[in-house]
Design a binder for these strands. Structure first.
Length: 258
DNA sequence: ATGCCGAACTTCGTTCGA
């Protein structure tokens, strides 16, 4: 079973790229972020024609998350976090697919630092931590997939330049500590578990030639509960999709479970 | 210190992203 997460940066602008990726890589589940479209304008028919059932939590202009399942309909469990600091933001969707609980997460960016957006990021992460604790305690196979907007370490395999990113909300100690507080509940960072060493960038900025000079970093993560981690077979980043025409600034990131 | 690039609405500039 292949489960992927993909920040598509606008599902309307990216629809041909999305369908192409679904057809070429055939994920069983695809968690999408940054739909940038309202519930009413989600391209359900195109997704269904590609062979996927879908649920989505849209928002006009920005944010927005979805869960797609090949040949079946995800069974929705929750939209939005409990006690979401700003329920107007569509950033969390949770469903069951084939016995696995799967969340599609679009964690706030948090820039500039300091400021209200950074405060919002940390508040949101605290609510995610509380909700994740409940999921963990359920002892189900759970996959928390999405764009966490946190670069876990300063290692060159996680970030092209710690110096260039030092003032950014993605690397601030408070962001990393909040991420660790979740992971240390007992979750497995699937990409790093499968590849303890080696570059695993998932994002390259559109600006300043970041893609051609490979100036990327790792912010898209799949966290696995113990019952999911026990089934982990492989994990990777579909890096070549970042180099295609009209690409998202993120690359699809995936795991396979037995 | 700032903009770079790209998408979408607030629509020929502004806001947001990371």
């Amino acid at each position: 079973m292949k489960i992927a997460t993909f920040n598509i940066n606008g599902i309307k602008a990216r629809l041909p790229r999305l369908i192409e990726w679904l057809e070429e890589t055939q994920p069983d589940v695809a968690c999408l972020q940054e739909l940038k479209t309202s519930d009413e304008t989600f391209p359900e028919a195109d997704i269904r024609a590609a062979g996927y059932g879908a649920i989505w939590h849209g928002q006009k202009g920005f944010n927005g998350v979805a869960i797609l399942a090949r040949g079946t309909d995800p069974v929705e469990r929750r939209r939005g976090l409990p006690d979401d600091p700003d329920p107007a933001h569509s950033r969390y969707l949770e469903a069951d697919v084939n016995g696995i609980t799967i969340a599609s997460i679009y964690l706030p960016n948090g820039n500039p630092v300091p400021g209200p957006k950074f405060d919002y990021k940390l508040a949101w992460m605290e609510q995610l931590r509380l909700h994740a604790a409940g999921l963990f305690a359920s002892e189900r196979p759970v996959v928390l997939a999405g764009d966490y907007n946190v670069i876990p370490t300063d290692h060159k395999d996680d970030v092209f330049s710690p110096t260039a990113m030092a003032a950014d909300a993605l690397t601030k100690p408070e962001s990393r500590a909040a991420f660790r507080r979740i992971v240390h509940q007992g979750w497995t960072d699937a990409l790093r578990a499968r590849h303890p060493a080696g570059q695993l960038y998932t994002f390259w900025d559109y600006q300043a030639g970041a893609w051609p000079r490979d100036a990327g970093f790792r912010i898209d993560h799949l966290l696995l509960s113990p019952l999911a981690a026990d089934r982990l077979v492989d994990a990777g980043v579909d890096k070549d999709y970042r180099g295609r025409e009209k690409a998202s600034d993120h690359a699809p990131t995936w795991i396979t479970l037995k």
